[in-house]
Design a binder for these strands. Structure first.
Lengths: 114, 114
DNA sequence: CATTCATATGTTCATGTGTTCATATATATT
DNA sequence: AATATATATGAACACATGAACATATGAATG
């Protein structure tokens, strides 16, 4: 079967993982990154930003949550480099920072929907 | 560019995600599943099981942790259906339950290693 | 059936986490 | 400069979580 670039990359990763003692530094990084995804509010924020940028107020409104709660979670997501922000006057617009973020969520959707 | 089956599936998922109000039931499932991955011990267990089944004692030994701690985490992983177990005499052998588990970890490895 | 080995589980404790509330900062407008 | 609007931040609280410890269960073996 033909394999796209992304799947070829995956194969390389599998080879790297196989038969190795788990590297604690790497697994810690992985776990920490999974933790950032492991909150309903943050997933909903990422979902909301999936294909467009939005300002804080609009995210809060869309998710029916307080501006403060959203802002706190945006900070967490920004620190993890999953989203980026840009200021435009009084507003701060947030968007997904990395295509991997989408792939990771997609993969999990595939998993939980089976 | 040619796309493999897996990537075509991803495209379908993107379409599903775009422009939708986040479905709270789905995002909760996603977050809960990410949470299970979001612990260093559990990631190390999954890593250890990546290409072979192992019994509890050997996992504990390999990760230099107590049998009790490993057993507790195995229970969490089993409840989330990420691993399955089979008994053979006195031993319980655990293995990855679903190829998605590998893909999800691979995707995250790709992400954190950039 | 008593013992041993492998695994599972209940409880406790310390630590981590998410939200709320109050307040601070930043930018635009008058 | 004063005010309004948008966002960020700090502290506090309730709740979740992971490991340690003690103990229970289950299976093999004498």
């Amino acid at each position: 079967m033909d394999m796209c670039q992304s799947c070829q990359y995956n194969m390389q990763v599998i080879e790297k993982i196989k038969n190795q003692v788990p590297d604690n530094e790497l697994t810690t990084k992985l776990a920490d990154m999974f933790k950032v995804f492991g909150d309903n509010t943050r997933i909903r924020i990422l979902w909301t930003l999936f294909d467009k940028e939005m300002c804080v107020y609009d995210i809060a409104e869309k998710l029916s949550m307080s501006q403060s709660a959203i802002s706190h979670q945006l900070k967490t997501l920004r620190q993890a480099r999953l989203i980026k922000s840009r200021r435009d006057g009084k507003n701060a617009f947030y968007s997904i920072d990395d295509d991997h973020v989408k792939k990771i969520i997609e993969q999990m959707v595939i998993h939980v929907e089976e």
